[in-house]
């Protein structure tokens, strides 16, 4: 395990999910989050107030191959 201080995400995971960091790979997996947060920040404003998960099944049919 790294000698670096534990990132805040580890405390949050322990508090909310009761899961302990299993190994160095687990710690490494948290390193991706800075980039993920940046990507979500860049998308702020793109979600419409009415968007919801069930729109996906509707879109599958609306965009279906003609004659399929």
């Amino acid at each position: 395990m790294s000698s670096e201080p534990d990132p805040p995400a580890m405390a949050a995971i322990s508090l909310w999910a009761g899961v302990a960091c299993p190994n160095a790979a687990g710690r490494r997996s948290l390193d991706d989050f800075a980039a993920l947060i940046q990507e979500f920040e860049a998308l702020q404003g793109s979600m419409a107030f009415e968007d919801e998960p069930s729109a996906f099944e509707y879109a599958l049919r609306a965009e279906a191959e003609t004659g399929a």
Partner: peptide, 22 residues
């Protein structure tokens, strides 16, 4: 290790990802 990171992702991110899919 890979599963572990999944517990840190906020529910709002997850629901945004699903809601934007359509």
């Amino acid at each position: 290790g890979r599963l572990y990171g999944g517990y840190a992702i906020p529910g709002t991110y997850y629901l945004e990802a699903l809601s934007r899919r359509g």
